[in-house]
Design a protein around this nucleic acid. Structure first.
Length: 256
DNA sequence: ATATGTTCGGTGACCAACGA
DNA sequence: TCGTTGGTCACCGAACATAT
């Protein structure tokens, strides 16, 4: 998208002039004229922030945020800095897009805290001090695979249909690759019983879905993998008594 | 039509004031 | 001292609005 490029110096002069003129407003007793006079100053400051990054590098707020992060990777960046370079109020929204939809490893202080509590990943000491409103680009590489998986997940999530079908579709689009419980929960639209649906798919509908405790001990906890896009004959949870007796006899009434 | 930006409603973390 | 309460903040995804 094309955006008009503003020269930062022009922008600066405009703001400086407005602030000079504001002196007179400040003297007056009325509140509203002061507020009204400050509005263009706010706008001007916003434009000045936007103008810091030339539009040939980044023309939209999201691009400017990314540009800034890539210029200072592995550096703790305060949200207020992003407010300045993005020039939009909801820079956090754009930040989430970069992380979730585009696969950039940008984490906030909150995420660092969660990582530390889960103890699954090592968190370097220097990141321990991060506040919620601080962010850091951990890797200079875009995780295209993660971004792609998110797009697939989002597409399936938005479709009509049952949660079980959506979960199956998502597993089918990742055959042989583990997907996390978080991904499945997302696909299911945060319905609480998504895990129950996964078990149904495995036991009653015959899909070869493996987890750590069901067939593939090398997987980590919370990872599900559809081993093959191939469905065994369905069976319900009720096992007929004659088959039950036959199996018990066959196995000598012992666990196999 | 698509990209970009804003608003909305819900959630939980955190903190300080308060009262038992 | 400790638990409760109320306020603030950041986060999140969806829905809505506007710009190109």
């Amino acid at each position: 998208m094309k955006a008009k490029q503003v020269d930062p110096e022009v922008s600066r002069q405009k703001v400086a002039k407005l602030i000079r003129n504001f002196e007179a407003e400040l003297q007056s007793g009325e509140l509203r004229p002061k507020v009204l006079a400050l509005v263009p100053i706010f706008r001007g400051l916003r434009d000045l922030g936007k103008a810091l990054i030339p539009s040939e590098y980044a023309s939209a707020a999201r691009d400017r945020i990314l540009y800034y992060f890539r210029k200072y990777p592995s550096t703790i960046i305060n949200g207020d800095e992003l407010l300045v370079v993005s020039g939009i109020q909801e820079y956090a929204r754009r930040l989430r897009e970069l992380r979730v939809q585009f696969g950039w490893a940008i984490v906030s202080g909150v995420t660092i805290k969660e990582m530390r509590e889960e103890e699954a990943e090592e968190v370097p000491d220097e990141l321990m001090v991060m506040r919620p409103n601080e962010y850091i680009l951990l890797s200079a590489e875009e995780d295209r695979d993660a971004a792609h998986r998110w797009h697939v997940a989002n597409m399936i999530r938005k479709q009509r249909g049952s949660v079980r079908d959506k979960i199956l579709k998502y597993l089918q689009s990742n055959v042989g690759h583990g997907v996390t419980n978080e991904e499945l929960r997302y696909v299911a639209g945060d319905k609480t019983e998504w895990a129950r649906r996964v078990r149904e798919l495995r036991t009653e509908f015959g899909w070869p879905i493996a987890t750590k405790t069901t067939g593939q001990p090398d997987l980590s906890v919370g990872v599900y993998v559809l081993l093959a896009d191939r469905q065994s004959p369905e069976h319900d949870r009720k096992i007929p008594d004659d088959i039950r007796r036959e199996v018990l006899r066959r196995d000598g009434y012992k666990c196999k």
